[in-house]
Design a protein around this nucleic acid. Sequence first.
DNA 1: TGATTCGTTCTTTTTAAACGAACGATACCT
DNA 2: AGGTATCGTTCGTTTAAAAAGAACGAATCA
Lengths: 299, 299
Amino acid sequence: MKLNYHHLYYFWQVARSGHLTRTAEALHVSQSALSHQIRQLEERLGQKLFLREGRTLRLTEAGRLAFDYAEAIFRQGEELTALFAEGGHAHREVIRVGAVATLSRNFQEEFLRPLLDREDLELSLQSGGLDDLLRRLSAHRLDVVLANQSVRGDDQHPWRSQRLARQPVSIIGATRLGPLAPFPEGLAGRGLIVPGPESSVRQAFDGLCELHRLSPTIIAEVDDMALMRLLARDTGHLAVMPPVVVRDELRVGSLSDFGALPGVFEEFYAITIRRRFESPLLKRLLNQSSEALLPGRRE
Amino acid sequence: MKLNYHHLYYFWQVARSGHLTRTAEALHVSQSALSHQIRQLEERLGQKLFLREGRTLRLTEAGRLAFDYAEAIFRQGEELTALFAEGGHAHREVIRVGAVATLSRNFQEEFLRPLLDREDLELSLQSGGLDDLLRRLSAHRLDVVLANQSVRGDDQHPWRSQRLARQPVSIIGATRLGPLAPFPEGLAGRGLIVPGPESSVRQAFDGLCELHRLSPTIIAEVDDMALMRLLARDTGHLAVMPPVVVRDELRVGSLSDFGALPGVFEEFYAITIRRRFESPLLKRLLNQSSEALLPGRRE
DNA sequence: TGATTCGTTCTTTTTAAACGAACGATACCT
DNA sequence: AGGTATCGTTCGTTTAAAAAGAACGAATCA
């Protein structure tokens, strides 16, 4: 009881033009053949797709529904054939990476570095929210999603999260603030910029504060690492963030690392979809990334 | 030179399992038939999809590409058949409306009102950004998009914008601010909340200010009408917005309309896609909406 | 009213898909 | 190593599905 895509194609063509005879001519088949095939589709689906009103055809509600699906299906098919038609030559390898927009750019760059100097590779990098990216991953429009949290897969969405890196998290602030006692003393009377309440870093940090009976003054909750970096640099407040994010500023000396927070880590995950044939390049990339970036990598 | 979806289906099934023989058994065809059909697909596309390495199959890069498309195509097909299989009964009429999230809720409700009390109709209402909604419209996942700007269609995207309503725009503020001289005098020394610079209302308002040699103090630029309504109610600032948005507050008396701005209008558009068979219900809805809501409707 | 257009239905013809046996290559086992 | 089972390919043959073509009926137009 499977759908016959040949029938659906004929239906689609007739539905978009509205005329059986003209469509038959355009497709170089007889109208009787068309009529018959469409009738078979209706039988298979169990519902009328056209209302035959005299000698004109009108779509039924079911037909409208089927038409919308057919449109989506055959547009993709056309896209596919176009892709193969133009590029008669061999296809370059493509890796499509989605990155959660709030992720550290340094981390993204680190991950992509092995790919950047390869001439034979086409790299597509897309930013967005995690939900959006996961949707694209499920639709096979992405090969991997970089995120700072893991997701659990289920039957519907066979996602697989692989931890790539685990960065220590520190108290970061402008060097001009002068020397600061290490955590937890140094925090007294200071404003803090912290990650949003959803993030794992924030939750670990809150736990740590509770342990030390601290209730620091939260100035801002910021999810975007790039923004947090700017705020740490340009305000007099302290930020809770991984030092790797502000690597350059630490080297130049405009920002200082006032000490790592014990037990607080920012974790990075590569989310992929289980598939029979994985791209060997992607596989290699994930393996070498988790080896290179995993614990205690100096940056 | 058209794509054979039957071939593609076989390829898809083989590619997802990785084995030709097992797939042949599962599909109740001989392996020779499968092998032959896949070979034909390769010939049609002009490229190898599998690397035959001894007695194992591996996807080529082109194969990976084709597989992703096949996945998208046949998932939709399965969705379609599932839809018809469960709902053996006649399909209820469906109208899928997308509304730009920043649009006045009152306007949306007004538009949808004729549909709400119909038992025989299934209504789907989706919010989002204009770009996102237009994409869904093009993919036939929406029937109509409500927006506060018109879009021009092109060959790729045969959009059609139809103006539904044109609302006057006023200076709105908390009643407790006391009586206010009409525009432009009343604005002197007041903070203003205005729509964002992209909106047509804002552009018309800026033009009006220039005409009167006014440069009012902009407190905030807000695109979301619901948010603007809250700000007008809860702050001491004046807002530039259509009175219809705060209809309830005006009636209760918590907000006052300090006078319409000449020549400034908020316009509402219904964006649809040209198609052969339009839903008669949608057609009727658009017609009666533009009649009912067009100029000077009291609200 | 009669010619014409357009979709349907039937039978016959043509085309394409499926089968099954033989073959070749590879992996596995002892 | 050498035998054997497994897996994909390639044939010629068979079978099933799609197309053609003619006859029919209903609606449209002059």
